[in-house]
Computed example of a mutant assay.
Amino acid sequence: MMNRFRKWLYKPKRSDPQLLAQFYYADEELNQVAAELDSLDGRKDPQRCTLLVNQFRSCQDNVLNIINQIMEECIAHERANRDFCVKFPEEIRHDNLAGQLWFGAECLAAGSIIMNREIESMAMRPLAKDLTRSLEEVRNLIRDQALRDLNIYTEKMKESLRHFDVLFAEFELSYVSAMVPVKSPKEYYVQQEVIVLFCETVERALKLGYLTQDMIDDYEPALMFTIPRLAIVCGLVVYAEGPLNLERKPEDMSELFRPFHTLLRKISSLSRVFLSNSQNAISLAEQPTVVPCQGGPQCRAVDHTPVRMTDSSCYRLPQ
Rank of each mutant, 00 (worst) to 15 (best):
E286N: 09
E255F: 08
N280C: 06
N280W: 07
S278W: 09
E251I: 01
P259S: 05
E247Q: 14
R265I: 11
F274E: 13
P250A: 01
I282T: 08
S271Q: 05
V290Y: 04
R265F: 07
S254R: 00
P259C: 04
F260E: 00
R272I: 11
F257H: 05
L256D: 01
L246H: 01
E247N: 15
R265V: 13
K249R: 14
R265Y: 06
S269V: 13
R272H: 15
K266M: 10
R265H: 15
S269P: 06
S268M: 03
A281H: 07
L275W: 10
Q287S: 09
K249M: 07
E255A: 12
S268D: 10
P259H: 03
F274A: 15
I267M: 01
L256A: 08
A281I: 08
Q287E: 12
F257V: 03
A281G: 09
V290W: 04
L270N: 15
R265G: 14
S283Y: 04
V290N: 03
L246R: 02
E286S: 10
V273L: 14
L275E: 15
S269I: 10
E255H: 12
L246A: 03
N277Q: 12
S283E: 14
V273P: 05
R272K: 15
S283C: 07
L264K: 02
A285F: 08
A285N: 11
V273D: 12
S269M: 11
V290A: 06
S269C: 12
L256Q: 08
R265K: 14
L275F: 11
L264W: 01
I267A: 00
F274P: 04
F257N: 03
P288K: 10
P250C: 00
E251A: 03
Q287H: 11
S269E: 14
S276G: 06
F274D: 13
L264Q: 02
L284R: 08
S276F: 09
A285K: 09
A281C: 08
Q287L: 09
P259N: 04
R258L: 00
I282C: 08
R265W: 04
A285L: 11
T262C: 10
T289K: 11
K249F: 04
L246Y: 01
Q287W: 05
H261A: 00
P259K: 01
E286G: 06
T289G: 09
F274W: 15
L284G: 07
S278Y: 13
K249S: 08
Q287R: 13
Q279L: 11
S268I: 02
F257S: 05
N277H: 13
V290L: 08
L270H: 15
S269T: 13
I267N: 00
D252L: 05
S254M: 04
E247L: 10
N280P: 05
H261F: 02
F260K: 00
H261S: 00
P288F: 09
L263I: 06
E286C: 06
D252R: 05
R272P: 08
R248C: 14
Q287D: 10
S271K: 02
P259A: 03
V290R: 03
F260Q: 00
F257R: 02
P288Y: 07
L284C: 09
V273N: 11
R272M: 15
A281N: 08
H261P: 00
E247G: 14
S254H: 06
